[in-house]
């Protein structure tokens, strides 16, 4: 809890935000997906500093790894931009910045508004438990939820990625 810790954190938080802004403002979709991964990595370092190593590892492997893979494969499965459209896209891109002043205004408002002060932090006694203990003993009910949602996800992949394109086209024609 020294001065260094805070400075380090602010620096990382700024990097985190910068990566996020870059993700949003960059023109190419692929770069945007990579920007998201960079944001994840910044968050991972922040989690490590906050003494949450396991959550950090999860964030790094799943969010920076798996989700980026999902995004990149989605991008590659859908149509790559043709060259004639690039110019048109650049024109469209300019339109995206129209609302940027609004974003900057909101950011300024947050920065200069009365900051949220925690009136009485640490009013609860600190508990010394390990993650394993909490995850397996205190939150076992959530684990059932996780099993359920993973099963649901499996069915989602079965239902949504079924390549019955012929059937889909037939339905379209019926409309």
């Amino acid at each position: 809890m020294t001065f260094d810790f805070n400075m380090m954190n602010i620096f990382l938080l700024a990097l985190f935000l910068a990566a996020g802004v870059w993700t949003v403002l960059t023109s190419r979709l692929l770069i945007s997906a990579i920007g998201l991964a960079v944001t994840s990595i910044m968050l991972t370092i922040l989690l490590f500093l906050m003494k949450a190593p396991l959550a950090g590892v999860f964030e790094l492997s799943v969010c920076a790894g798996l989700i980026t893979v999902v995004f990149i494969s989605t991008i590659s499965l859908t149509k790559p931009v043709e060259k004639s459209e690039v110019l048109q896209l650049k024109m469209k891109r300019l339109k995206r910045f129209v609302f940027l002043p609004l974003l900057l205004f909101l950011a300024a408002w947050v920065l200069f508004a009365k900051p949220l002060h925690l009136t009485n932090p640490a009013q609860v006694p600190v508990e010394q438990t390990t993650l394993q203990h909490v995850l397996w003993f205190a939150r076992r009910f959530d684990l059932i939820g996780q099993i359920l949602i993973i099963l649901t996800g499996v069915f989602g992949v079965i239902v949504l990625f079924k390549t019955k394109t012929g059937q889909a086209e037939k339905q379209d024609n019926e409309r």
Partner: peptide, 20 residues
């Protein structure tokens, strides 16, 4: 609040849900 273990288990659950 000094409940890092609880927060970690929340974050892990959140990440699993996020991926799905």
């Amino acid at each position: 609040s000094g409940r890092m273990a609880l927060a970690q288990s929340f974050i892990i659950t959140l990440i699993v849900i996020e991926v799905v």
